[in-house]
């Protein structure tokens, strides 16, 4: 069964089409990653699933029901920017959000999550005294405290330090393991690759990728050479059969042109410098993202 089903959903703001004829199935119990450049329509899609925005056309079903009021109690929503009453105490604001969702045993859940995310000492403090990372964790608790069956997290890891990122990532995975369907948007492709069962990419309001990471990578084949050499990127310029070089300093990624043999390219490199490591790989999600939404792709699309 699908937790969320979008069918031919379109949303316009004036003359701008934010989401264009989008169809999407989010299986129940999955962790689904939404990726896409800024302004591509991720947040608008999430807000429509939350019933905050109404689509201009198409339909949205959550747990099999058309979106009308009460089913939003089964959804927890964490917006991109924090939305907490600054003058309220942490425990009070969490109880308020939990009770708005008609949550049960909200008080116990609040205490459990505060303990779980190491915030118990801050329970009686006002929200305005929290650091950004703490406020983000509190916002996450507000999202899950009513035990939602579907959690929608809009860029939950943005701006967090590695320790808090790990804590929140574990909490999200714990939710998924407990049967909660999780949809989150992110700009961190590593996070999406490692955490998501399914990845959906939206670009200029239209769906451009949807599936498991393996299935998405299969669409592109093993067209990437990941290499480390003694002379770094300087030794790789002007190689025949290479479409693009991504230089990460210690490692370089070479995109092989269609129909060219990676072995020939390797031979050419060996003739120029010593090769320390060589791997023929499928493109990373980052690379796929850039291929779709990078400057070159934009030029093609805009032309």
């Amino acid at each position: 069964m699908n937790a969320v089903e979008l069918r031919n959903v379109t949303k316009r703001f004036g003359r701008v089409t934010a989401v264009d004829d989008l169809s999407l199935d989010v299986p129940q119990g999955s962790v689904y990653g939404f990726i896409g450049p800024n302004g591509s329509g991720k947040t608008t899609t999430l807000r429509m699933i939350m019933n905050i925005y109404y689509p201009d056309s198409g339909s949205i079903r959550v747990f099999g029901d058309e979106l009308h009021g009460a089913c939003t109690d089964r959804i927890g929503y964490m917006p991109e920017e924090r939305g907490l009453y600054k003058r309220m105490k942490v425990r009070d604001v969490l109880r308020f959000y939990g009770e708005l969702k008609n949550g049960k045993d909200v008080g116990k859940e609040v205490d459990r999550w505060l303990e779980r995310l190491d915030l118990s000492d801050w329970a009686s403090r006002k929200v305005e005294t929290l650091s950004k990372g703490m406020a983000q964790k509190v916002q996450f608790i507000a999202t899950v405290v009513a035990r939602p069956e579907l959690a929608i997290l809009d860029e939950p890891f943005t701006g967090l330090d590695p320790v808090n990122t790990d804590a929140l990532r574990e909490a999200v995975l714990e939710l998924g393991a407990g049967g909660t369907t999780v949809i989150f948007s992110t700009h961190d492709m590593n996070v999406a690759e490692k955490m998501c069962d399914f990845i959906f990419m939206i670009f200029k309001g239209r769906k451009v990728l949807d599936g498991t990471l393996a299935a998405i990578q299969d669409q592109y084949g093993s067209d990437t050479i990941r290499i480390r050499t003694e002379d770094g990127g300087a030794a790789l310029h002007g190689l025949d059969g290479v479409e693009k070089i991504a230089d990460f300093g210690q490692v370089q990624e070479l995109r092989v042109a269609p129909g060219r043999d990676p072995q020939e390219i390797l031979s050419a490199i060996v003739s120029r410098t010593r090769v320390r490591s060589f791997e023929l790989a499928r493109p990373s999600l980052h690379d796929i993202f850039v291929r779709i939404a990078g400057p070159e792709a934009r030029e093609v699309t805009d032309a």
Partner: peptide, 13 residues
């Protein structure tokens, strides 16, 4: 302006 409305509107009309 503090985006509280967006959170609350996830729970109430």
């Amino acid at each position: 302006s503090q985006r509280i409305a967006e959170v609350v509107l996830g729970s109430v009309t």
